[in-house]
């Protein structure tokens, strides 16, 4: 139930993000979701892509600093209170969220929340117990 996320270390330098997107374009890699976290000196680009292993390889060979992290993709209903329900479960189950970002599925019915939890296995068990739908790797990459 874990999904591979590619993280890229980026210096705060103009054009750097564009270079990354060019590398992905050349390799025919499609981005499913992304988030950019930044501090005053550097940023971390987090990506969910259709071919994570290939993305890792092409980014690394173009000299970028990469790491692969396992994250959870949680499906929630796209309506008010959808996110609150999920976070309520995390809170009551003692699961700490390192970071998260979300996007809406093409159908428009559901949203997908990407979670990085301190204890991913614990989070999986908790969500499953509460009947929350976790997307598999294949489902996420082919969204």
């Amino acid at each position: 139930m874990l999904v591979k996320q590619i993280s890229v270390f980026l210096e705060n330098r103009s054009g750097r993000l564009h270079e990354v997107s060019e590398v992905l374009k050349e390799a025919g890699i499609n981005i499913r979701a992304l988030s950019l976290a930044d501090t005053s000196d550097f940023g971390i680009l987090r990506l969910i892509v259709d071919k994570p292993d290939k993305a890792q390889q092409v980014l690394k060979s173009s000299g970028l600093t990469i790491s692969q992290t396992d994250v959870l993709a949680v499906e929630v209903e796209d309506k008010p209170g959808g996110l609150a329900q999920i976070l309520g479960i995390c809170d009551s189950g003692g699961i700490n969220v390192e970071y998260m970002y979300a996007f809406v599925e093409k159908s428009g019915q559901n949203a997908v929340v990407i979670f990085r939890a301190e204890n991913p296995q614990g989070a999986i068990a908790l969500f499953q117990k509460n009947g929350i739908h976790l997307l598999s790797e294949e489902q996420v990459y082919s969204l």
Partner: peptide, 13 residues
């Protein structure tokens, strides 16, 4: 930063 120690968590960096 050494590639081996790159973390995707900002607080670690």
């Amino acid at each position: 930063v050494d590639e081996k120690f790159f973390s995707d968590e900002i607080k670690k960096l």
